[in-house]
Design a protein around this nucleic acid. Structure first.
Ligand code: MN
Ligand code: MN
Ligand code: MN
Ligand code: MN
Lengths: 136, 136
DNA sequence: CATCATCCGTAGCCATTGCTACATTTATAC
DNA sequence: GTATAAATGTAGCAATGGCTACGGATGATG
């Protein structure tokens, strides 16, 4: 009889799917923060924020506008749509929970900020609930 | 005076860098596990493991061979190099710690397996140490 | 209002990771 | 040994997200 190989395809498929939404999540969160801090969010603000070129930002903003998450016009600031704003709030809340969780776990601020920026996108509802519970 | 925008580029740069190593990490870990479980690791084993086509696997194996992590010849099994084996052990150990950590935190097995597959690549040495400490 | 610096768009390149379709090699069955 | 099945390779396409180079638009300065 053939040896059974443990099915591991589900976690990998889920991880790929999460990576596919990662850019959208980071961008709407960034736009929300930049609008709060500066009053408006320009392409170059996002480029500096993410440390990428303005070309990369411009193309991604266009795609997210097609997905109805962002709104902009040529040479105008980038704004959140209603859908984008809703997503941004969810994403930011999750990010803050992950950051607070790592901090309470004993990770220093700098490393908690670095690691939470990646971890946030891989935290499902069950894990998020467990983190919230730990924080109480 | 212009409002100071908090510098957030470091976490994003680090996250991009971690994503760039993610495929290599997952592949060497998979090869190690498949060799352990089946005796050898074929291209199609990896395709089923990751739930991607054999073409995707074949191209990635070629790249990782160039990076001296894997070794193979046409129509032959895929093997780990010394460098790949060393990386696989580190990666698998980290993965197991993250999985055990989530489980101890109260996350069910299925979700812990899904989330840990993505989270593992964003856990730095400080966070890993904090998780290990929590497990004690 | 003319100039200049800044911001932004476009063209075009690359790497990575997905895919289907088809060709070839290897292993299995008869 | 030959036919068939399975595994692997190759060709070629798409989406995403990096980049540089260049040119046009916008806004500030004088
Ligand atoms: Mn993030
Ligand atoms: Mn974030
Ligand atoms: Mn993984
Ligand atoms: Mn990730």
């Amino acid at each position: 009889m053939k040896k059974k190989i443990k099915a591991r395809s589900v976690p990998f498929s889920q991880t790929r799917s999460r990576h596919a939404s990662e850019t959208a999540e980071d961008y709407v969160e960034a736009v929300m923060e930049l609008v709060e801090e500066k009053g408006e969010c320009r392409v170059l603000d996002l480029a500096r924020y993410f440390n990428v070129s303005h070309v990369t930002v411009s193309r991604i903003v266009k795609r997210l506008q097609d997905e109805d998450l962002l709104y902009t016009k040529p040479y105008k600031p980038v704004e959140l749509t209603a859908k984008g704003s809703k997503l941004a709030k969810r994403v930011k809340e999750r990010h803050l929970i992950v950051l607070a969780f790592l901090t309470k776990l004993g990770v220093d601020k700098a490393n908690a900020e670095i690691d939470s920026e990646g971890i946030e996108h891989h935290v499902g509802s069950k894990t998020l609930a467990a983190m919230k519970n730990f924080l109480k």
